[in-house]
Write a protein that binds this DNA or RNA. Sequence first.
RNA 1: GCCCGGAUGGCGGAAUCGGUAGACGCAGCGGACUUAAAAUCCGCUGUCCCGUGAGGGGCGUGCCGGUUCGAGUCCGGCUCCGGGCACCA
Length: 844
Amino acid sequence: MYRLTEIEPKWQQRWAEARVAEIDVTAPGRKLYMLNMFPYPSGDLHVGHGRNYILGDAVYRYFRMRGRAALNPMGWDAFGLPAENAAIKNRTHPRPWTLANIERMKKQFARWGILYDWSKEIASCEPEYYRWNQWLFLQLYKRGLAYRGTAPVNWCPQDQTVLANEQVVDGRCERCGALVEQRELSQWFFKITEYADRLDAGLDTLEHWPEKVKLMQRNWIGRSLGADVDFQVPALGKPIRVFTTRPDTIFGATFMVLAPEHPDVATLIADHPDREEIEQWITGVRNQSALERQEAGKEGRFTGKNAINPFTNEEIPIWLGNFVLPQYGTGAIMSVPAHDQRDFEFAGQYGLPIRVVIAPASGAAGFSPPNEAGGLKPAAPPLTEAFTIKDDSGVAINSGPIDNLPVPKAIERIIEIIEERGLGKGAVRYRLRDWLISRQRYWGTPIPMIYCDRCGLVPVPEEQLPVRLPLDVPFTGREGNPLSKHDAFVNVSCPQCGGGARRETDTMDTFVDSSWYFLRFVTPRDDAKIFDTELANRWLPVDQYIGGIEHAILHLLYARFITRTLHDIGLISFEEPFTRLFNQGVITKEGYKDARGSWVSPSEVQWRDDKPYRGDELLTAEVTKMSKSRLNVVPPDELIARYGADTERVYTLFIAPPEKEAAWSDEGVVGAYRFLGRVWNMFDRLQDTTSPDITRKMHQTIDAVTSRIERFEFNTAISALMELSNALGDAPSREAYETLLKLLHPFAPHITEELWSMLGNEGMVLTSQWPVADRALMQEETVVIAVQVNGKLRGQVEVPAPPDEQRVFEAVFANEKIQNWVAGKELVKKIYVPGKLVNVVVKG
RNA sequence: GCCCGGAUGGCGGAAUCGGUAGACGCAGCGGACUUAAAAUCCGCUGUCCCGUGAGGGGCGUGCCGGUUCGAGUCCGGCUCCGGGCACCA
């Protein structure tokens, strides 16, 4: 039995005392900026969280041993709603709750053997940090990138605050799950839409980001190419502009639909006989949540007015429709029911005409060509659904000047004509909307603005920052934002006229805090500026960023946006904050549910006939993400007390490829423990000489582990180390053993430090260097080559390395066994795959 | 609905280029040590068939088909599972 759990605290203490991870950012060296996404200090960490940090620490230790000047800081995303809710529940204040959690989590990091440069620690809830949030806000305000505007926004009735678009999932609050309501409110926004094109184009430069994340961002930004086209409306005396991605189908636009919110609606229906009914309907639609609006199905009202299709010159009816979104495009669409499924459904419901203007390029089955009678009658087949073709397999018909052009060409040509005739222009539209940053909550960065009755909106002067969040607020419950009841905070004098004024009581979305924190780590104590431009340009972009896929859109998009604004202000020279991104997968574990769907603690579960029971009640087992609420977390403390942190580290990295979801298995842990035990026990039997076989294996392992760490293939890196350890067997050579310890150090730092010092060496983490593989010594002396006859494996031959074609075939035809398969047949072909196998093709 | 990703033993997973499928680990079986248990160590372990045995043979990477001397890997067509977006015109 080895003393792994005893030696770990010793080394953790030594690393802390020696401040091994502290780095002078002004010192020379080849820099490397490693970063794990800073966590929300929610309390205890479980082994699922551990994966993220263990992985980062392994990479950090590896690069240190390669001699890189590596910065590996850590901090706390310390503002946010859970602290407030905990404060209400425990009748305390968010601050002590948050700080206690930070202390607890720091201890856990240390117990995992994770090395952070704590001299650079930051916490976003401290005025030394959030004053720069406020400073950043003022810079954006100056440039018109922060503005107050009235818009339909997402309101969470449970959390009593507005939410960003990105925080609404399936019509519900991402945090608490309450159904989100639409409200028309005046709020603070950041103008991220102004950067939509650059945020989209920039994705192409991110070679080392997962394709999946780039794709998610691309879809979220939602760039669409098309055209804005004006349709004259005689009743208005002016045109209504629509946006379409399919201007080639304009000859098929048989009606127009406006969002009920469209600004021209009031005028259009002013003299409508049923005006009141329509207005009631509009109010009803506007009061629906996005989810309700969609679930209601397609509904509309005819305005009684017509528009002129600029190409067919026909009068087409203008309808209102609940399926047209006010915030996208122009809030008005030209409807082409033949070629858009939504328009098709709407047309079917209200008996509106359908005209086919696209046909399959080569007569598709079931589609007879439309008639030629002026081309204005509905096309031949009664369509059962819209007929959408976006590529060369469709051609325009019934479309005058673009007839017979394939779709992509037709789009190009019709835009030219639209522009020539002054009907509109080619246009790009984005799905992305501005970032709503106001929160009606207490525990966040105060927005540094003042409302003055005489001067209007007045920014707090920079020299008055920070606007401190007052700590003496009562935490009684859900009665709105406690800040608005804090008179000393709210009542201020106007910085411009000196008269009485009111302070903004909204706080910022905490995603503002995390949108630039990676810049602060380089100079975290600088109270004169947000960061040092020269040092930031030296250390950033972050070379390796590690965190969960759940931030694929929110945090990473905001950080890319803010980084660009700082670039445009002239504070940094780069536009992308993170060069390499890695998203680790979650750890899952079986949880147990009773008949009512409540989670049951594993300690209450009894197994009978391989089925889980609680008493007589049969439970269902479900493998889900590890989380407190599902009662399926594995706390690291007990695990570490029994097997040591090194065991948890090795097991966590060995369990599965790190980007994949991985199922935790308590039995599996012992495999890692046994492996480390074998390494430990080998120490007593070291030999002085190394056999050629072991030398070869050693160099192969160095090569394999190195390349696998660089590619984040930790599971196979560890399996290579297990192979080496198995090969060392009873007679481990000292040379190979020392190499094994070095290669193992990023994964199991404590045991390797201990053994390294027992061998008489000084501090592995500080002084040892990563071994280099000697290619010549990796080579085999002889090579075993598989021999196939007609593709079937028929034997093996052994030839001296390196094998060449002639020698290999000589050996093959000298082999008696193989001759049996070839005898009496005609040789057709000889195939030689260097180093691996040969194949002889014979006939007869 | 649209867009991605995946499917390999009882389980987690290996297999840079198309070249001996199942590395490494778990679980299981057998054995050693032990009064015994734990721990540790050794051997076996995809599946079916033939053989007392050494050994030999067939099948096998979700399904169907194709390319190739050769396919887990490439191509075409499916099925199922997971994820993202979702009335975005």
